[in-house]
């Protein structure tokens, strides 16, 4: 397109096949160069939809370390590339404007959230687990049978956690004697 006139669609109309200016002559440069953004992705990662338990395959497209598209994975024999509205909304989920990216802390009787570093939060939680565990500790029952447990701490987990995550939760809490470990699966 060295000839500037050739960039003018009206001129292309007169010189090309598209006389009425309703087809190729009317295209803008952007239109001519348009490609699906998925083709510019740095990588495509196979994933699984985080919503219901059908387990539809997803493809996650990443460009410049940003997820640019999540769509159905045609390879999946479960879903054959299809997604429901929730699955199709996965990118909107992980990039929701309402998502929180920082630790929030609310002190007892506080009226507002406060900032807290992640490291400090984990440290404080560890202290509290140790204390609450001790407070609720039950070595034996009334009959002298070993209970080896605490009722001071409880957990209720969602069912969008990975198996590996559940495994660690159960392992850690069991080793700490925490028995009130529950899950959405009960609900």
């Amino acid at each position: 397109m060295r000839n500037p006139l050739a960039r003018w669609p009206a001129a292309r109309q007169l010189t090309g096949r598209d006389r009425t200016g309703r087809g190729e002559a009317a295209r803008s440069q952007r239109t001519i160069e348009l490609q699906p953004r998925t083709h510019q992705a740095d990588r495509v990662v196979q994933s699984i939809c985080p919503f219901c338990a059908v387990g539809c395959g997803q493809r996650v497209y990443v460009q410049n370390e940003v997820v640019t598209q999540i769509e159905g994975d045609p390879d999946s024999p479960i879903s054959r590339g299809r997604l429901c509205p929730k699955g199709a909304a996965s990118r909107n989920l992980v990039q929701s404007p309402l998502r929180e990216y920082r630790v929030r802390y609310r002190r007892p009787y506080g009226t507002e959230w406060e900032d807290l570093s992640l490291e400090r939060a984990v440290d404080m939680i560890a202290d509290r687990v140790i204390t609450a565990r001790a407070e609720g500790w039950q070595d034996h029952d009334a009959d002298g049978r070993s209970l080896n447990r605490t009722l001071g701490v409880a957990s209720l987990g969602g069912a969008t956690l990975d198996n590996e995550e559940n495994y660690l939760i159960k392992k850690l809490f069991t080793a700490l004697g925490i028995v009130q470990v529950e899950n959405q699966a009960r609900i």
Binding site: R128, V129, T131, A132, E135, G136, L151, G152, V153, A154, S155, L156, G157, G158, A159, T160, L161, E165, I169, Q180
Partner: peptide, 8 residues
């Protein structure tokens, strides 16, 4: 119960 975890 003193402490409670709600992961997800």
């Amino acid at each position: 119960v003193k402490g409670y975890f709600l992961p997800g």
